[in-house]
C-alpha cells in the first residue's frame, strides 16, 4: 500500500531530487553558455559542440566508444542468449552454481572487476605477447555485459510453455529448426532488451575501461576524465550533455519496453483464465 507523503515528506523528496539533478541541469545549461564562465550566463551558443566535433582526439574517443559498445553488445547478446538457453535446459544441480558464477561481474564493484581483468590481461599478455588495447577493452566489455543479457533473456525462457519445442517438433521441425523458428522469436523481446542494456552499460562504463584499455585507446568517459585533470573547459559540459542524453534515452526505451511487455503478459494471463 502506498500512502501519499505529507508536506514534510514531499519537501524532503523534492530536496533529494534537486540535489541529485540540479548539477546535471546546470551542466546542460552551461554547455550552451557563450563564455567560459561556470556561474554567469552570458548568452546562447553551439560553439562548444562545434569545437567538440573539431577536436580529433575527442572524436576518436567517440568512435571508439560507439564501436566498442556496438561490438560488445552484439557479441554479448549472442553469447548471453545461448548461455541462457543452456542454463535453462540444465539440471538444477548444475544450473545454480553456474548462475552464481554468471552473476559475479554484476555483483562485484566495477573497480574489482576492472583490476581483476587488468591483472588477467597483463599476466596473459606477458605470456602470449599482447598488450592492453582495443582487444582487451572489447573483451572486458563483453565480460561485464553477458550477465545482464542472461538475466534479461532468462525470464522470457521461463515464461515459455514447457511443450513449445515439442509442439514445433510434432509439426515437423528438427530440434534446431524448432529453436530458430519458435524459441528465438518467442524470447526476442528479452534478447532485444538485453542488447540495449548491454549497449547502454558499455557507453556508460568508465572504471573497467580505465583499467583494461591501456595507454593508446580511450573511450569518451575516459576522455572526459582526462580533460578534467587539466582544466575544466565548457567542452566537457557539452560532451557530458551528449553522453547523459544518450544514456537517458536508452534507459527510457528499456523501461517503456519492459512495462509494455509486462502489460502484455498480464493481459495474456487474464485472457486465458477468462
Amino acid at each position: 500500500m502506498t500512502r501519499k507523503p505529507g508536506l514534510f515528506g514531499r519537501v524532503y523528496n523534492g530536496l533529494i531530487l534537486l540535489f541529485l539533478y540540479a548539477p546535471i541541469f546546470v551542466l546542460i545549461v552551461f554547455s550552451f553558455n557563450s563564455t567560459k564562465s561556470r556561474s554567469v550566463w552570458s548568452g546562447f551558443t553551439f560553439d562548444w559542440y562545434r569545437s567538440l566535433i573539431q577536436d580529433s582526439s575527442i572524436m576518436n574517443a567517440f568512435y571508439t566508444t560507439i564501436i566498442i559498445a556496438l561490438l560488445s553488445a552484439v557479441i554479448a547478446t549472442v553469447a548471453g542468449t545461448f548461455a541462457a538457453v543452456g542454463f535453462y535446459n540444465m539440471r538444477r544441480r548444475w544450473r545454480t552454481p553456474l548462475m552464481h558464477i554468471n552473476n559475479i561481474p554484476m555483483m562485484n564493484a566495477d573497480i574489482v572487476t576492472g583490476v581483476s581483468l587488468a591483472l588477467l590481461f597483463v599476466s596473459l599478455g606477458s605470456a602470449l605477447r599482447f598488450n592492453l588495447g582495443f582487444g582487451t577493452l572489447l573483451i572486458a566489455h563483453i565480460t561485464f555485459n553477458i550477465p545482464y543479457v542472461v538475466l534479461s533473456v532468462m525470464p522470457k525462457l521461463r515464461q515459455l510453455d514447457s511443450n513449445l519445442v515439442d509442439a514445433a517438433c510434432d509439426l515437423g521441425c528438427t530440434w534446431l529448426k524448432a529453436f530458430w523458428k519458435v524459441v528465438v522469436p518467442e524470447i526476442m523481446p528479452g534478447i532485444i532488451n538485453g542488447l540495449i542494456i548491454a549497449f547502454t552499460l558499455s557507453v556508460d562504463d568508465f572504471v573497467i575501461s580505465y583499467f583494461t584499455a591501456g595507454g593508446n585507446v580511450m573511450t569518451l568517459p575516459m576522455k572526459i576524465f582526462a580533460m578534467t585533470r587539466r582544466r575544466i573547459s565548457p567542452e566537457i559540459n557539452a560532451l557530458s550533455t551528449i553522453l547523459f542524453l544518450t544514456v537517458l534515452i536508452l534507459l527510457i526505451v528499456i523501461n517503456v519496453r519492459e512495462a509494455k511487455q509486462e502489460e502484455k503478459q498480464k493481459e495474456k494471463l487474464r485472457r486465458s483464465q477468462g
Binding site: D161, D166, A168, D170, C173, P185, E186
Partner: peptide, 28 residues
C-alpha cells in the same frame, strides 16, 4: 524422431506460438 511420425499432438495448455497469428499457427 517426432517430426517424422504420422502423429500430431494437442498439448496441455496448448503450446501455441504466440509470435504468430491464428492463420500462421495453423499453417506452421
Amino acid at each position: 524422431p517426432p517430426h517424422k511420425r504420422l502423429v500430431n499432438t494437442i498439448f496441455q495448455k496448448y503450446a501455441l506460438f504466440t509470435h504468430l497469428n491464428v492463420f500462421e499457427n495453423v499453417a506452421f
